[in-house]
Amino acid sequence: MFVRTIYVTGDPEQIETAVRALNSEGRELLEERPGYRGAGVFVDRELGKLLGVSWWDSEKARHNSDEVMREHRPAMLRPFAGTLAVENFEAVVYHAVGVPRAGGGLRVTRVEFDPADARIFADTFRSAVLPRLEEMHGLATAGLFLDRERGTGQVGALFTDRASMAASRAAQAAVRHDTAAKVRVDVVGLEEFEVVHADVRPG
């Protein structure tokens, strides 16, 4: 599958307006597009950050949907959005062990790597990282998103509740350390979000 992420920052007091728009008009627009496989909305209400993720069964479906969504995003995100960044990835790994639910937690690890190492990174994630993530209490889903050409990516670990996410911090820190020792991967960002909505239907 393929994913598009939108990363939005703005006034924390206005974030609920964007959440409501994305969960109503935004979801309706996405569901009308061919190749749609699900979406998620994640927030940091204290700092004023919103992460939106949509899932697609092909690069073409993702691209075609973006032509429509690009026209509607400014109005949906107003007056919250101060900055907006859009990124596209391949969902190299998506593994579900539980059911995501509102109020849960999402930890996103942003990484950079040599594009030539994309395959070994993905193989290492499947063989060495994923089994250790599965052992963490409350894990619902884990995924690896890569932009093979740019050498950027995201590791997502979604937990059924925020207490489980907090309790996993030390264990996942150890996983990051061990992975960096095996593969040339630089961690360039680490963030946590509250789950507002998460629904993915793998193809």
Rank of each mutant, 00 (worst) to 15 (best):
T124P: 03
A171L: 03
V86L: 12
R162M: 08
R132C: 04
A81F: 01
V99D: 11
R107P: 02
D123T: 15
Q154N: 11
V155I: 14
R162P: 02
G156D: 11
F125L: 02
A163S: 14
F159E: 00
A102T: 10
V97C: 13
A142Y: 00
L106A: 03
G103N: 06
F159H: 01
V175Q: 01
A122M: 02
R107E: 12
F125K: 03
L144N: 02
D117L: 05
E90R: 05
Q154K: 08
A81P: 12
V86A: 09
T83R: 08
G153S: 09
L139I: 11
T141E: 01
V93D: 05
R126V: 06
A142W: 00
R169C: 11
A116L: 10
G138K: 06
V155Y: 03
A171Y: 02
M136A: 13
H177E: 14
R107C: 07
L139Y: 01
V99Y: 11
R150K: 15
R78E: 15
E135R: 12
P131Q: 05
A116K: 10
V108K: 00
S127V: 13
M136S: 12
A173N: 13
F125Y: 12
H177Q: 14
D114Y: 08
L130E: 06
R126E: 08
Q154A: 11
E134I: 08
R148E: 15
P115S: 04
P115C: 01
V155H: 03
L146K: 01
L158A: 05
V86D: 01
R176W: 05
G138A: 06
I120R: 14
G105E: 00
P115G: 05
A116F: 14
D123F: 04
Q172W: 09
R119V: 10
E135P: 08
E149V: 13
A166C: 10
R169L: 13
G103Q: 09
R148A: 13
G138I: 02
G143E: 09
D147Q: 06
T109Q: 04
S127L: 13
A122H: 02
M76I: 06
P79W: 04
T160S: 15
L77W: 09
L130K: 09
T152K: 05
A142L: 05
T179C: 06
N88C: 13
G151T: 08
G156R: 03
Q172E: 15
R107S: 07
F121T: 04
R101C: 10
G105C: 02
G143M: 05
A91C: 15
G82P: 10
V92E: 10
R101A: 12
L133C: 07
F125R: 01
E87I: 09
V86P: 07
T152G: 09
Q154W: 04
I120P: 09
L146A: 07
L146C: 13
H137C: 13
T179K: 02
R150W: 15
E90S: 12
G98W: 04
R148Y: 07
E112D: 14
L144H: 02
G143Y: 03
D123H: 10
V99S: 13
F145L: 12
H137A: 15
E90Q: 14
G98V: 04
G153M: 07
F159Q: 00
R169A: 15
E134H: 13
R107K: 08
V97H: 11
D114K: 04
A85E: 15
V129C: 06
V155C: 11
G138Y: 03
V129E: 06
T141Y: 00
A102K: 12
R162Y: 03
G98M: 06
A166F: 00
